Amino acid sequence: MTTVLIVDDQPLQRLGFRMLLESTPDTEVVGEAGHGAEAVRKAAELSPDVVLMDVRMPGMDGIEATRRIVATGGRSRVLVLTTFDLDEYAYTALRAGASGFLLKDALPEELLAGIRAVAGGDAVIAPGLTRRLLDAYAHHLPGRPPGEELPDDPRLRSLTEREREILVAIGQGWTNGEIAERLVLSESTVKTHIGRVLAKIGARDRVQAVIFAYDLGLARPIGPG
């Protein structure tokens, strides 16, 4: 059973999500919140598997609420709802620690699949779209000039040569199939490597691994075209 906390400032929107989730046998709504501060408090109190988080709310918005929920180190994962896929709110939410995002007009089955995926530890966002988001908002990143030596990060040092290759590939937005093909590995081996990389760098999911690779200069903006 996947437990869900619904966060949205619109009561009718919360009701719609609740009706959908309660009609599904493997999901349970454990609470609702109408703003970010309430979401942070209820996430700590209820420890849901997934926090379904609206972004635009009065007072504390969904971005700050996501940041605070993730910072506690608890079990709850955040799935953000946004209006546009290449949206600065989505970008900021990912950097705040969200495990992915869905569009508000997603089909019911897409929403349910997204909640299940996030609860299972996966990221709900296409690998390439993570890169497109980061590329689109690269001006927000500290950046590292080409040719500059990479930082001496102990997490990076902990990776084997193969694991570092895998991290760079994740940062490029490659899917597991593309990594397997280009590095001549089986997909099951790729999944094993990715699991080890995530554990060693302390990333909650693949999205956070892309951000880590980007911040260290292992991945760079693709640029126009």
Results as ranks from 00 to 15, higher is better:
Pro145Arg: 10
Arg162Phe: 03
Pro146His: 11
Trp174Leu: 15
Gly223Gln: 03
Arg131Glu: 15
Ala106Arg: 14
Ile211Cys: 09
Leu86Cys: 02
Asp205Arg: 05
Arg77Gln: 12
Thr24Val: 12
Arg18Ile: 00
Met57Ile: 12
Gly217Glu: 04
Glu109His: 14
Gly217His: 07
Met19Cys: 00
Glu38Ser: 07
Met53Asp: 02
Ser47Ile: 15
Ser47Tyr: 12
Lys104Ile: 09
Gly114Arg: 11
Arg131Trp: 11
Gly97Tyr: 01
Leu46Lys: 01
Phe212Asn: 00
Ala65Ser: 05
Ile125Pro: 08
Ser186Lys: 13
Thr175Pro: 00
Ala203Ser: 13
Ala169Ile: 14
Gly97Ile: 06
Ala93Asn: 04
Thr130Met: 15
Val118Lys: 04
Arg144Pro: 00
Gly147Ser: 04
Glu28Gly: 05
Ile166Pro: 00
Val184Lys: 13
Val80Trp: 08
Leu103Met: 13
Thr2Gln: 12
Leu86Trp: 07
Leu150Trp: 09
Asp85Val: 12
Ile222Arg: 15
Asp122Ser: 15
Gly114Met: 09
Leu134Lys: 05
Glu28Thr: 13
Ile201Asn: 01
Ala43Pro: 00
Val210Trp: 06
Ile69Cys: 03
Ala199Val: 05
Phe212Ala: 01
Thr160Arg: 11
Gly97Thr: 04
Gly177Glu: 15
Val30Lys: 08
Gly97Leu: 08
Glu165Leu: 09
Gly73Arg: 07
Arg206Val: 10
Thr2Cys: 12
Pro151Met: 04
Met60Trp: 06
Arg196Pro: 02
Glu32Trp: 03
Arg14Gly: 00
Glu38Tyr: 06
Gly225Lys: 07
Leu5Met: 04
Met57His: 09
Arg164Asn: 08
Glu64Ala: 08
Pro58Ser: 10
Arg77Asn: 08
Leu107Phe: 07
Glu165Asp: 15
Leu20Arg: 07
Asp85Ile: 10
Val50Met: 08
Ser76Asn: 06
Val210Gln: 15
Glu163Cys: 14
Gln208Cys: 02
Lys191Phe: 06
Gln208Thr: 01
Ala96Arg: 02
Pro11Lys: 05
Val210Ala: 11
Gly62Leu: 02
Glu22Gly: 09
Met1Tyr: 10
Phe212Thr: 01
Leu198Trp: 12
His193Gly: 00
Leu111Asp: 09
Leu102Thr: 12
Pro221Arg: 02
Pro224Val: 03
Ala43Asn: 00
Val168Thr: 14
Glu148Pro: 02
Asp105Pro: 07
Leu185Val: 07
Val80Tyr: 06
Arg67Cys: 09
Thr27Ala: 13
Pro127Val: 12
Asp87Val: 12
Lys191Cys: 06
Leu12Lys: 05
